[in-house]
Amino acid sequence: MQIIQPHFHGIARTTEDYRRMAMSGVVAVAEPAFWAGFDRWYPESFIDYFRQISEFEPIRASWFGIKHYCWVGVNPKEADNLSIARQVISRLPEFLQGPTVIGVGEVGLHKSTPNECKIFEEQVDLAIRHNQLLLIHTPHLEDKLHGTKRVLEILRGMPVDPERVWIDHVEEHTIRMVKDAGFWVGFTLYPITKCSPRRAVDMVERYGWERTLVNSSADWGPSDPFTLHECILEYRRRGHSLQEAIELFHNNPARFLGQNPKFDIRPVVVEVQQAASGAGVGA
């Protein structure tokens, strides 16, 4: 089965991960810009990071036939420093021209501070002005409910097309409000924390697979790119057809990301061939 991993932090993974992902059906990954585990002191550090995910990672992924795309933006954990964040934002347009850069992300909120909200609004505005897709991070744990409501509140005041916006890391208490507002939702699967593969399948069964993207993030923390495969296994184990699995794990990412013409993987349909009458084995 062909799989698209729509949220994947390749710079935190080994080449062996790419190889094993290719062997298990992954045909494309999309890498959002995120936090490095520490706050960067210089705008130039972000610029080099964007070069890494837009220039080098596509080469590494291509060694195994995987197409690599990326998003650029200032992640919410570093958005509190207005000066650095604004210097980085001023450089984003040049990266948006890159052949594998498909949008602005992951931007959003972490602790929902006033500065984070300002930088989030400025990046949403940039995405609108440059006609870009938008990938939005929502906070974790006890901050998620408040932060997700705040994200929706900010978006309500801006001329965004919900079809072109993906709000990520939803869980049981935030999925309904995001789907009802017309946005795409994302489940980010982890081995221990956040959302598990089984809970993701529960939510798909409750709310449907439309406008839904499943990913395993696979960052530098305790994570595993193959939680996505665990989710596929669980989905199939519960009796969902191969075509339904393809809709969720390949076609949905192709539909959403394909709104940017640079992403050229199209939805696929499984066709069962009829046996030719009278056909036998051998000549």
Binding site: K111, T113, H173
Partner: peptide, 21 residues
Amino acid sequence: QYRTEQLLELFSANVREPGRV
């Protein structure tokens, strides 16, 4: 109501960080 939802709401409602808006 779904228990997962209730549990997540319980933990959300009982922690408030200073500085949030």
